[in-house]
Design a binder for these strands. Sequence first.
DNA 1: TATGAAACTGTTACCGATAACACAACGATA
DNA 2: TATCGTTGTGTTATCGGTAACAGTTTCATA
Lengths: 315, 315
Amino acid sequence: MATLTDVAKKANVSKMTVSRVINHPEQVRDELKELVYEAMRELNYRPNAAAKALANKRTQIIKLLILEEMDTTEPYYMFLLTGIANELDKYAYSLQLLTRNNVQIGDSDGFIVCGMRKEDEELIKNLDKPVVLFGHNEMGEDFIDSNNEQSMAKATQYAIEEGYENIVYIGIDIDEPFAHAREKGYTKVMADNGKEACTYTLGNRSRYSAAFIKEHWNEFQKNTLFLCASDRLAMGVVREIKEQNGNIPEDYGVIGHDGVFLDQIAHPHLTTLKQSITEMGAACARMVLKKVNQDGKPQGNQLFETELKRGGTTR
Amino acid sequence: MATLTDVAKKANVSKMTVSRVINHPEQVRDELKELVYEAMRELNYRPNAAAKALANKRTQIIKLLILEEMDTTEPYYMFLLTGIANELDKYAYSLQLLTRNNVQIGDSDGFIVCGMRKEDEELIKNLDKPVVLFGHNEMGEDFIDSNNEQSMAKATQYAIEEGYENIVYIGIDIDEPFAHAREKGYTKVMADNGKEACTYTLGNRSRYSAAFIKEHWNEFQKNTLFLCASDRLAMGVVREIKEQNGNIPEDYGVIGHDGVFLDQIAHPHLTTLKQSITEMGAACARMVLKKVNQDGKPQGNQLFETELKRGGTTR
DNA sequence: TATGAAACTGTTACCGATAACACAACGATA
DNA sequence: TATCGTTGTGTTATCGGTAACAGTTTCATA
């Protein structure tokens, strides 16, 4: 592997000049810059991350802290991970995976935290390095999230346009911002269209939503659409409607939310609001790195649109 | 953060002695060792990975190369990842996630490769650092895998003991060692018990197995168990049996394989052969690190047992 | 033409660890 | 007692970068 020194020799300049070309190119004459770039190309120079880290008193490590229990968790973390990892890679940063049990181990330059619940505030506040959250929060931390409200608004609008007479919202029974935002998107559009909102909330398990449908089956007339706050809930709804011999999608429609894996496992495939998790992961990575380089300066937040992906559960 | 030098001062020895206590403790007198340990504890010393990496001409990075397409992939990679990451963490190593598209980027001390197919041999052979595969292979590379043959043998045995008269094997239609091993486990136990093997292979999609059941429904008498090479196939089978109004688990049994996520999504939960992916991940990590420290010396392979996890699809 | 600020570029020291070598203390051997 | 191998510890140089400072060139200005 070629080093800075090799490049410097080849370009007939000092190591420092090469280092500058990389980190502060504006301080170097164009002429020399060209020479250096040329030498780097010829030698296929790749900076040594360890040396860089040592000199900068950095670790070149970002930790990803996953607070959710993984065995109950949906597989979207895989996408998040690749999104983050690939982006970090570009800056010679690497990713370290943490769970609740090993936060304290070792050093890093920053954190990305996901699966956070309210009771984790304390934990987050104790982190001594720049933090970006994956998921909305109200404690003022920078975050990346889906635009949950807009997402559900879009779905509701779509359901109305498709002519579903009754639109029932099945939300998640948890006091977290994302859950409220999703519900709000629904109620707002319903109100705007002079329709009456009909909202239920359940624990996020397909058997709960299945049980719910079973119990209330006679209340649901034909031409009803069930707008669910997660694909998991949507799956339970679909399952029970089929059990009751209801017709999907003619008489009953179902829309889920998340669009990661579950929607494709379901039969028929779910109509869902798909999040672009990989992109959001990349955004998380960019945001922490920026924050690291700006000495922890707040970066605000960034919301991503979801895509309405039509499956076999709506007409 | 305390450094080697700090510890050395506190213990009244040279840096080198401290370094030795860490890396070659047998070369240091017990008396001094105690002093050093004491100092390390008091200062809460954590070695600086970057410095270590630089001095050792290592990167302290292991790359995980995932060759499968992730959107069709089951979420067990999350478990694999945490298994690997947590283990690497213990040795101040970090994990870098790669997909097919960015193998060449940057440096590392070793590779863990998973989702490998035969056509990837070339790619693997070109890796210039120690490699451990997750998944059986016949190219002589060290690997970690489930004991697929034994796993299916166990399931077959179980099905026989439970009194299922006919046991049909639904395998995956792919020419890879794991697929053959699973089938072999089945056929062997069937032969040993004087029963006739009945084997089909399909593409690994639930709609294929569902279609298959539909097509052959009249051939399957009551008291048949379907032993499937994946939970995905098992899900399709369950779906179609229900569709045909077959009784699960009384008249028809279904056993899947993998035990990661899908078995829990299915309704009822699948009886499946659960792999302990997290442990296997840790084993991968240990193996590459050992290989790295032994200059690439072959490590052989390691097979993990699966656990027969009873769900609602067998009696 | 002398002068000083601005714009570049080079030198030195250092980040925190380790290997290789140098050296001291020790007991065993002749 | 002189010599030697062992064992244990310290010294030095080095890994590949970067910041801080020092030195040089350039050019507008007096």
